[in-house]
Amino acid sequence: MAINWFKYSAPTTFYGLAGKLIPYFAWPAAILFAIGIYIGFFVAPTDATQSEAYRIIFLHVPASILSMFIYLIMAGYAALGLIFNTRLSSMMAQALAPTGALFAFVSLWSGALWGKPMWGAWWVWDARLTSELILLFLYLGYIALHASIEDTRRADKASALLAIVGSVNVPIIYFSVKWWNTLHQGATIKMSGTSMHIAMQQAMFAVMAACWLYAIAVALARVRGIILEREANTQWVNDLPEVKQMNGEHS
């Protein structure tokens, strides 16, 4: 029985599917996050050199990895939308951008708060932190370009092209910033170098999984909002149960 994948690539069916899927991503995300925090704070031992401050790593590393991968996934969706002209892919790319930007911000924020006790300064021009900052600028550029074009078709295509160009540049930026950093400062302390206690790895993995599930749930929820906005004048949207109710009731 050939699964008709394209059935779900139309906004009409995808809207319903996404709606059903969100709880299956949202609740496991919350549970896994709680587990990760529990292991990270109660099971993992105190680090010899940094005592308790290192526990920020369980948030900082997943957030940085997420922000980078979400950008690449966003560029992937954007490319799909550009090549196959499927509007749902462009909507998905637009839905992912804010979440990726927020993860980049969380990564920078936790990196700064971790840097203060460890390196003594709120902001350290460490290679990874600097590349993360540039990644945040790329996100903001994508969102700003998409927001400043009224015609949604052109906005989708233009920002898609920017995302593709950006994703080609991400490795180049990461490499040149690493080159620039080792030139001036020498490699700062590498956390991944020290052998991580098993509990630390479990906590990191749990928080990472939780962040992934959270990102998917949030992206699905936002893409449903985008579908409602863009397909406002279509018949199938107006037949939706939540639109049928009178204005007063809570949807």
């Binding site: 920020i56 971790w114 949807s251």
Partner: peptide
């Protein structure tokens, strides 16, 4: 430092969820 980073992260996620519900 620890609760500052986790607190802001949870705050950011909560705001994001609220914004999406509001948009819908």
């Amino acid at each position: 430092y620890v609760w500052g980073s986790y607190g802001v992260a949870l705050l950011v996620f909560a705001i994001e969820i609220m914004l999406i519900r509001n948009r819908r």
